[in-house]
Amino acid sequence: MPENKRKIEVPVMADLFDKGDKPEYLLWVGSAGAFDDRYKKVTRAFVKILTHLNISYAVLGIEEDSSGDVARRAGNEMLFQMQAMMNIETMNAYEVKKILTCDPHAFNTLKNEYSDYDGNYEVIHHTQFLQQLIAEGKLSINSDIYKDKTLTYHDPCYLGRANGEYDAPRDVLNAIPSKKVEMKRNKSNALCCGAGGGQMFKEAEKGDKEVFIERIEEALETKPDIVVTACPYCMVMMTDGLKYKNKEEEIKNYDIAELIEQSLEL
């Protein structure tokens, strides 16, 4: 074990349930959060924050299944509903009431779409959760590691336009001493990163530019040190954009949870 480190045993719903425990929140990791190498770091960062603040939570672990968001948006309603019903069965068996997730796509699907199949949950995106903790004074950031850094925030479509959440991520960023610059197209006018609706998994149709390049160019106009995202797909796209522009050394791409993790030195 590394020195001065504490090992985190991530609580799994089935284990807690066996012991008769019921956590307050289910943390929905999501397929990207579990398998995408880059986004695993975000999951880990958020889990550290939860642990640090003694939040009562658990994950479904290997019982979690794809939310079906991609399947539905790619037109495979049959597969989506299968995924939804299986997940709902699992979650209802554990009497899940509140769900936390770092993925705006899962957030949207679980919050707005599962209710058609008896899956009724209070779903909270991690930026909303962090916003709430900051507002309640349970989380405060005194670190000034970003004091001289310029941050620009890219709105994920499924948090922003799809669910009208523009303030939570900005409130959290405002709690981190740093310089914030908005991109030209922001909030409800934000440009998509290009990955939604199944695009993430296929070649783009013929055109004269990739969407993520258009977006990263707009981000670069703000002369940022850090491009901030709050979505696994956006993160892949923005990182690709920085690589394409040969900027990945000087400009970083972080999720909001990672900024908090680093600020708290977790």
Partner: peptide, 11 residues
């Protein structure tokens, strides 16, 4: 699906 949680340490 839980491999991300392996060897997870915090300060």
């Amino acid at each position: 699906r839980m491999l991300w949680a392996d060897e997870l340490y915090m300060n």
